[in-house]
Design a protein around this nucleic acid. Sequence first.
DNA 1: CGTGTAAGGAATTCTGACACG
DNA 2: CGTGTAAGGAATTCTGACACG
Lengths: 109, 109
Amino acid sequence: MGNEPTSYRERKVISIGVVKELTGLSERQIRYYEERKLIFPERSARGSRKYSFDDVERLMDIANQIEDGVQTFEIRQEMIRKEKNEAKKETVREDMLRGQLNAYFHMRK
Amino acid sequence: MGNEPTSYRERKVISIGVVKELTGLSERQIRYYEERKLIFPERSARGSRKYSFDDVERLMDIANQIEDGVQTFEIRQEMIRKEKNEAKKETVREDMLRGQLNAYFHMRK
DNA sequence: CGTGTAAGGAATTCTGACACG
DNA sequence: CGTGTAAGGAATTCTGACACG
């Protein structure tokens, strides 16, 4: 449930200039996808955006979809849909665990 | 023998400012350890240093050793010693493989 | 030897806006 | 809608040097 370790893929340490080189996108595009809530860079102490390798991959995926004519809000909806699905899976997993624990304690009565 | 894939740990994408935050070292220190050939950042198109996560870890290790009174040239010597050892291991591995292949072909004669 | 600092220039990044379509 | 661009300011990074010890 927690996510403290933060793998290399998830650590936000890459500046927009490097992201530009890595993805081939313009700064304008990168910032715009953030405006449309498709990516969520962190900010350094004095306000410059910091991206993770995951963000970079996500950006390349977004760029491909846009090339295919998909609009940003559609990409976003699909993103939200997937997140909900993940949350649901998580809930199901927890329910199963709870069920097993219950069964266990009843058994011991 | 090759090393094309370049994992996240090895990709040089982090600017000195972020390395400073991550390690707690000063820019002066970080640049000095490079001068002493302990780390090897790449350079971006217009000359700013780029570090990898591996470099960040190595820097923290270096800082610890310096705190313990180890001098930079000693750290470097130890580094070189380890590299030679790695190269040797690699050679041994190749020799063994060659030996096995030889044995195989002789057997088939 | 290892690190701090002031110096000046060059490159980076940021925001808000106008433009096109 | 998605992206380009000019604008001005603020922060970053670079190098070579002087300093201390």
